[in-house]
Simulated assay, not measured.
Amino acid sequence: MKKIFFALPGNDELATLLAEKCHAELGKAIIRQFPDGETYVKIESDVKDKQVILICTLNHPNEKLLSLYYLSQTAKELGAKSICIVAPYLAYMRQDKRFLAGEGITSVYFAKLISSFADSLITIDPHLHRRSSLSEIYAIPTTVIHAAVLISKWIRGNIEKPLLVGPDIESEQWVSEVAHHADAPFIILKKIRRGDEEVEISVPDVEKYKEYTPVLVDDIISTARTMIETIGHLKKAGMKKPVCIGIHGIFANNAYSDLFFAGADKVITCNTIPHESNRIKIDEIISISINRTK
């Protein structure tokens, strides 16, 4: 089946790269706003009997969802065989339970909504905290791609004597995987409770790793508070300035500049969300998954 790619606003560069790698057509569509704020959609390419690939990373999802829905519905009405949404960053994964009485479990509602108008979904490292897979909430086939190997490759090629650092025991599995592929050592910061309200953070084997460059890795950099706190602990321990790496760089408020102010040497992200920190490209691994879809 022939594939045709469409870029939602802000996704043009990634859509072009993916269409080229998949040797597929890059479709033309118009998405704009009427003066009253309503959304206008027009598909100018032939989509009949084709697999339509919609490229739309879902940061700021409320601004993008209607355009995504309208484009999908229009393509279906014009004869598209199937709709595949490629969302390198998948939103609404945080609220996966009812923490307080009366709260909406929005991850479930969002999954139901996407499943109602798409036939498949491809994403990178969604924030699966209390769920083992997307299939628990999505009713359509989903493909989850992992960026750990890409991050490790970037570390090997760009950092001399890297030391992967995890802020707490919960990060150990993720940090150890990246460290393994990067052929680098890793440490996990230790919490020592001194009293009911006093917790001391220590850097294990600090003298052993004084000549190493600390590398902090996380799936999402949003407010960056955890990374900033970790940088503070490393600074107190006399470590070198760290490199901060995130798969998805949301950078809420002033998070990007706050990291540098706290003492980061570099801040690096994958290009799942367009940002000046993008250094690790994910188009190759996404194109492989797209070519496997039908």
Score class of each variant (00 low, 15 high):
179 A>L: 09
174 W>V: 07
88 P>M: 06
195 G>S: 15
81 K>N: 14
27 G>S: 02
227 M>C: 13
96 D>F: 08
276 E>D: 12
237 A>E: 01
30 I>R: 14
171 S>Q: 07
217 V>H: 05
137 I>Y: 00
75 A>W: 05
172 E>Y: 10
13 E>P: 12
270 C>Y: 04
96 D>I: 01
42 K>E: 12
179 A>G: 11
109 Y>W: 14
130 R>T: 13
10 G>M: 06
277 S>E: 03
215 V>D: 09
94 R>A: 09
124 I>M: 07
18 L>K: 04
106 T>F: 10
251 F>Q: 02
12 D>E: 15
256 Y>V: 00
215 V>R: 11
3 K>P: 01
182 A>V: 08
105 I>K: 11
182 A>R: 08
3 K>F: 01
164 L>E: 03
204 P>T: 07
33 Q>E: 11
8 L>K: 01
241 K>G: 01
276 E>Q: 15
226 T>H: 09
6 F>S: 00
52 V>K: 06
81 K>F: 10
239 M>R: 03
198 E>P: 03
10 G>R: 00
75 A>P: 08
7 A>T: 03
238 G>L: 09
38 E>D: 04
218 D>E: 14
5 F>D: 01
261 F>H: 15
210 K>T: 13
256 Y>C: 01
47 V>E: 00
251 F>M: 02
164 L>S: 06
159 I>M: 05
214 P>A: 05
187 I>V: 14
163 L>R: 06
104 G>Q: 11
197 E>P: 00
82 S>H: 05
171 S>F: 04
271 N>K: 02
16 T>M: 06
126 P>L: 12
280 I>K: 02
118 A>V: 09
31 I>R: 03
181 H>M: 12
45 S>I: 00
119 D>G: 08
252 A>G: 12
162 P>A: 10
198 E>L: 14
72 S>K: 13
282 I>W: 00
118 A>Q: 06
214 P>E: 07
242 P>T: 09
118 A>D: 04
197 E>G: 02
109 Y>F: 15
222 S>Y: 03
208 K>N: 12
231 I>D: 04
281 K>M: 03
58 L>N: 03
272 T>C: 09
246 G>Q: 09
76 K>H: 11
270 C>D: 08
37 G>E: 00
84 C>P: 01
24 A>Y: 09
131 R>V: 12
223 T>D: 07
111 A>D: 05
278 N>A: 08
167 P>W: 13
286 I>G: 01
279 R>G: 07
175 V>G: 05
143 T>G: 09
227 M>T: 13
74 T>R: 10
83 I>P: 04
51 Q>I: 04
222 S>F: 05
101 A>N: 13
69 Y>S: 07
101 A>W: 10
98 R>F: 06
32 R>Q: 13
122 I>D: 03
167 P>C: 10
93 M>R: 02
254 N>G: 07
239 M>D: 00
176 S>F: 03
244 C>A: 14
16 T>A: 14
1 M>G: 05
133 S>Q: 07
138 Y>R: 07
181 H>L: 13
29 A>R: 05
264 A>I: 04
269 T>D: 06
201 I>N: 11
175 V>W: 03
24 A>S: 15
279 R>Q: 15
281 K>T: 06
122 I>A: 02
59 N>H: 09
188 I>A: 10
91 A>I: 09
86 V>N: 03
284 E>L: 10
